[in-house]
Computed example of a mutant assay.
Amino acid sequence: MDIKNYLDSTYLKTAEQAGLTNDANTKIVTSFIQEAIDQRFKLIMIRPDHVCLAKEMILKASSKVTIGTVISFPEGLNSLEEKLAEAQKAIDDGADDLDFVCNYQAFISGDLETVRNEILSGTQLGLEHNKIVKWIIEVAALTEKQIIQISAFIKNIVVSNFKEELYQNVFVKSSTGFYVTENNLPNGATVPAIIMMLENASPLSIKAAGGVRTYEEAAAMIKLGVRRIGTSGALAIASGQETDSNY
């Protein structure tokens, strides 16, 4: 197994979050893109404003690395119109994967119509442009029952509205990696959460993001059935080391 085929190398900090100037933060983004090219990772996952930079670098290197970006990140509270506009711009800029943050707070409060509309419209927009669409559900904010319910909810919308051959292009993704938990509890993918997602989102694909820190943990996730792993420590994981990254 070549673990690099499963790794979405990720850098999603803004300059403010990183405590850097915009130029210094862009240098880090550039280094992550170059590393993904050099290491032949599956994908480089970056903020929308860096998609054009990644596209330029990847084309120049004649690389097969794909580009992913996040939509309505990290809270998922933007309106449907805002989410679709952000996704369309990312498509126009050259993104291959669109990782939408699902409005999980609306789901928790019982506003299923809002969630249904964004899942349906966002998925349709991505698939119409031959993109991969992922829905981040933020497992750390959910109870076990809610993880099961929202995974099945997304699955049912996709299965009811899109062709079977497209199911593999829609993912349910565990986490943003930025959710703040109490008492230092895990804020990303855990084995129990991933198993619940796999059991209830199938035949959709699953991406484990946040909290995967070693090659062994990544391999165990893949063995469970995960198709993608999001990590800001892709090089360490691929090298058999442990990443100290928190997302």
Score class of each variant (00 low, 15 high):
3 I>P: 04
14 T>Y: 12
18 A>T: 09
22 N>Q: 14
23 D>H: 13
26 T>L: 15
27 K>S: 14
32 F>W: 09
33 I>D: 04
38 D>I: 08
46 I>M: 10
48 P>Q: 10
50 H>K: 13
55 K>L: 06
60 K>T: 05
60 K>F: 06
60 K>L: 06
62 S>N: 13
67 I>C: 08
70 V>S: 05
71 I>N: 04
71 I>E: 01
77 L>Y: 14
82 E>Q: 15
85 A>D: 15
85 A>C: 09
87 A>C: 03
87 A>M: 07
91 I>P: 01
92 D>R: 04
96 D>M: 05
97 D>Q: 11
98 L>R: 02
105 Q>I: 10
108 I>M: 12
109 S>I: 05
110 G>D: 09
110 G>W: 09
114 T>F: 06
117 N>L: 15
125 L>C: 03
125 L>F: 07
130 N>L: 08
131 K>G: 03
132 I>S: 00
137 I>H: 00
137 I>S: 03
142 L>I: 05
145 K>T: 11
147 I>A: 00
152 A>Q: 11
155 K>F: 02
164 E>M: 10
166 L>R: 11
168 Q>I: 05
168 Q>P: 00
171 F>M: 09
174 S>R: 08
175 S>C: 05
175 S>G: 02
179 Y>A: 07
179 Y>N: 04
187 N>F: 00
187 N>K: 03
188 G>W: 01
188 G>I: 00
188 G>D: 07
189 A>S: 12
194 I>K: 02
195 I>L: 10
197 M>W: 10
198 L>A: 06
200 N>I: 03
204 L>K: 07
205 S>Q: 14
211 G>V: 04
212 V>N: 00
215 Y>P: 00
215 Y>L: 13
217 E>M: 14
217 E>C: 04
219 A>I: 10
221 M>D: 05
223 K>S: 14
228 R>S: 07
230 G>K: 05
231 T>W: 05
233 G>Q: 04
235 L>H: 13
239 S>H: 11
239 S>A: 14
239 S>N: 15
240 G>R: 03
242 E>W: 07
244 D>S: 14
244 D>K: 15
246 N>S: 12
247 Y>G: 03
